[in-house]
Write a protein that binds this DNA or RNA. Structure first.
Lengths: 121, 121
DNA sequence: TGCAAATTTGAATATCTGTTCATATATTAA
DNA sequence: TTAATATATGAACAGATATTCAAATTTGCA
């Protein structure tokens, strides 16, 4: 526990509480999980995507309806829906030429609810 | 309800289900809430900040410990902590020269838990 | 007081993100 | 088949973001 151990991690920063850091390291998540979680929250970290997710939390809607709702282009909405689809936040069903989008599961709604609680208190 | 109403919103996109859009509009959140929510999720949409939040979910830690844990500079950690502080995700307490950070409330942990559930199923 | 440790801050830069525009695909109807 | 509708896609550009580096604060101690 002497100061000489510093030689081991020359590049690393100084560290006051080595035991706490070790404990934190042992309880840490896998690196890939942080990145996947980050992608999930990042996808929800945009006002327009939240508008889409909130609307789809009420009922399924098609691309051009969402574009009308947001006041943005259908292309922009489509790009955002692709991202949300890739992360399994939404899914769709085709009816003729129209694709109806809806939330993939209840997690999204829960996340938004807890987020709102955080804001409102 | 005739097609002539299109003149009203020339710039807007076409819209298939006007009633659904109207309903969605009536249930929508305030614009400021979407932006605040987006800021919250955006703050959680970064691997290193999630590492910080997860670690602080276990126990309070100081800046240089967090830097050692993440393997990044103290300056970078400090910048990120400022963002997390501004959004009330973390708070700190001073003990001498050392600032100990911890989660501000239970919401952060809940959000991460639900996020993990989403990933893992 | 003066010095060192812990942290914060601001500016600069390289990277990432969201939108736009043009084009492509898929489905239906004529 | 051709035309029209709904949506997807790719490239490009403007704006946002994370890290780095240097300098400034803040606190404790000699």
């Amino acid at each position: 526990m002497s100061g000489q151990e510093e030689k081991e991690d020359r590049c690393a920063v100084r560290c006051i509480h080595r035991d706490q850091v070790a404990r934190a390291r042992s309880k840490a998540l896998a690196s890939s999980e942080y990145e996947k979680l980050a992608a999930l929250f990042k996808a929800m970290g945009d006002g327009n995507r939240l508008r889409i997710l909130w609307a789809l939390g009420q009922e399924e809607m098609c691309v051009c309806d969402l574009a009308a709702l947001l006041g943005s282009s259908e292309s922009a909405v489509s790009h955002q829906l692709r991202l949300l689809r890739q992360l399994a936040l939404v899914k769709n069903r085709r009816e003729g030429q129209v694709l109806y989008y809806r939330l993939n599961d209840g997690h999204v709604h829960s996340l938004i609810q807890i987020g709102l609680e955080h804001l409102r208190e």
